[in-house]
Write a protein that binds this DNA or RNA. Structure first.
Lengths: 145, 145
DNA sequence: ATACTTAAAGACCTTTTTATCCTTTAACGA
DNA sequence: TCGTTAAAGGATAAAAAGGTCTTTAAGTAT
């Protein structure tokens, strides 16, 4: 809708991991991908990126898997978005004009700014952990995509 | 940033046409594409779609070209966006969840709604003509992409 | 009429995104 | 230390988006 598929998967995976890992509990890709309804190998790729960027932790070998530590659960969702999709959504002109700026704004410039800052704010003030927490009450909203 | 390239080109083309056509004045694709800084043939394809959907008017043959009539200049920008990108930006879950709804909302559901309605509103209350008008004052912001 | 200009249409190519597979690497347990 | 297990990583494939080119046909001026 607004993010790439990869980014949606990433957010869902992070939320799922926040709710279901930690304190020595790890989760494998098969579990993650089936729970968030994303293709297994694609999910693996995405988790790889997030792991490399230290937004997710991983453990190889027997009983290995992925998990989030306390710090990672406290990260804002916007970190995930930027790690996967970059920050193009948050900067640049809505009409794709290079020349557009405060000094020479395109006709929609200021209105776009408002929408965008709303988006930035919501993604910044929502942490992975807080989102995971808000679904604790049995509502397994992540099941089936 | 938020729209596809095709959609950005479409909006720019519409604004340009609104400012530079009408009352028997037509503009050819070469002029349009160079003024809005978009690939010529790709622009032609996009204009074709807009024409078929009656958001833009065209005239074949000698001295032919594209133009907007009064009604078309009064159309809200959202019509262009929907014609090219569809309405996926305006509906559907931000996390791509099919199950997400008012009853079983995803953790970001309500916050996304606010952002989205802001976007919808801005695109609905801005008409092609009004945007074209706001750049009348010499600022050829469309030049060069 | 007809010749010329220009949009319409559609075939085609390239790049990016999405998705899959397979090999390598590392961790751990026995 | 050896074997199992799971992530890391590279290589490939399919689909969608972005972009180019050629042909067709409509309209207009002459």
């Amino acid at each position: 809708m607004m993010f790439s598929k990869a980014c949606e998967y990433a957010i869902r995976a992070a939320i799922f991991l926040s709710a279901n890992s930690g304190d020595g509990v790890l989760v494998g890709i098969s579990d993650i991908s089936s729970e968030i309804g994303a293709p297994k190998h694609f999910t693996a790729k995405i988790l790889q990126v997030l792991t490399r960027k230290r937004l997710v932790s991983s453990q190889k070998g027997v009983n290995g898997g992925f998990y989030l530590d306390a710090v990672q659960k406290g990260r804002p969702v916007i970190d995930i978005v930027i790690a996967i999709d970059g920050d193009n959504i948050f900067k640049g002109c809505g009409l794709g004009l290079r020349e557009c700026s405060e000094k020479e704004p395109c006709p929609l410039h200021h209105k776009f700014l408002a929408v965008r800052s709303g988006l930035t704010q919501l993604l910044t003030e929502s942490t992975i952990g807080s989102l995971a927490h808000s679904l604790e009450s049995g509502s397994s909203f992540l099941k089936k995509s």
